[in-house]
């Protein structure tokens, strides 16, 4: 199991990943269990319709409709809670990759071995990608399988598409945390910058449709790539996937560059 930096990192993740999966499954279970009573309450949709537009565009993606399974999950899980969890997970992994290990001083042990700094970053990024995808797969599987128990039927293919975009959303901020952590060695700064940018990106996307001067920036938000095309209904948007993957690649390259030219603290 401990045959490479990537495998070691996954080995370290395994306990916390199990915890995250359990949490996500419980969350999905809770949403699914409430679903039958929500479905039978048409007033919920009226309530949504009456919400201020700004509020709706922040908390509910396009075409919010609580009376269908897809609309319900979109509002309850995909618009806020799901992204929050995936981003938290990926940012945690990204910041602990280099900065966390440096903070715990174990980087000396690792870099006492003939392993290049670039390889450390790349293998740790790989482990972050696998862990985040794993969490997204678990979330999607829980949605489809648990949903069936409560008559909350979601199309498996579209759910998978939505999970792909959800994982990519998390990874963009995870890669940002990785890059900041690799360049500074500070886990706090790494998480702080990633969280601040995530909140900003969320607001820009949510309000971009309403506020004129924000509109040009809306498309830059990873949240726009994630949800603007409505993946639970429309499936995968390949341009959005490409943008997200490129963003992650550029940030990982920045992490390699930033880490490769600085002092490592003892």
């Amino acid at each position: 199991m401990l045959h490479s930096v990537a495998l070691k990192t996954l080995h370290d993740q395994r306990r916390s990943l199990v915890g995250w999966v359990v949490a996500v499954v419980l969350l999905v279970l809770m949403y699914a269990a409430i679903w039958p009573s929500i479905r039978d309450q048409p007033s919920m949709s009226d309530f949504l319709d009456q919400m201020p537009e700004a509020f709706r565009s922040l908390f509910a993606t396009a075409g919010a409709d609580m009376s269908t399974p897809v609309g319900y999950i979109q509002i309850e899980l995909m618009s806020f809670m799901g992204p929050t969890l995936l981003i938290l997970y990926a940012v945690g992994q990204g910041s602990s990759a280099v900065a966390g290990e440096e903070d715990r001083h174990t980087l000396d042990l690792l870099l006492g071995s003939p392993v290049s700094r670039a390889r450390v970053v790349l293998e740790k990024a790989g482990a972050m990608v696998l862990g985040t995808l794993g969490l997204a797969v678990a979330t999607g599987a829980a949605l489809v399988l648990v949903g069936r128990l409560f008559d909350l039927s979601l199309p498996a293919g579209r759910t998978a598409a939505a999970m792909l975009h959800l994982a990519l959303l998390g990874l963009v901020f995870g890669a940002l945390a990785l890059a900041v952590g690799a360049a500074t060695g500070s886990p706090g700064r790494s998480r702080g910058v990633a969280a601040a940018v995530a909140v900003l990106a969320y607001l820009v996307n949510g309000l971009g449709g309403l506020v004129d001067w924000l509109r040009p920036f809306q498309r830059l938000s990873p949240f726009y790539q994630y949800a603007a095309h409505d993946p639970l209904r429309a499936g995968v948007s390949w341009p959005a996937v490409v943008v997200a993957v490129l963003t992650v690649a550029v940030l990982v390259a920045a992490a390699v560059w930033g880490f490769g030219r600085r002092d490592v603290r003892g």
Partner: peptide, 17 residues
């Protein structure tokens, strides 16, 4: 990386996992 292939390093305050 080549240097480290030939060196066994013990840091001043070694941290372990």
């Amino acid at each position: 990386t080549s240097v480290r292939r030939h060196v066994g390093f013990l840091p001043g305050e070694p941290a372990l996992y």
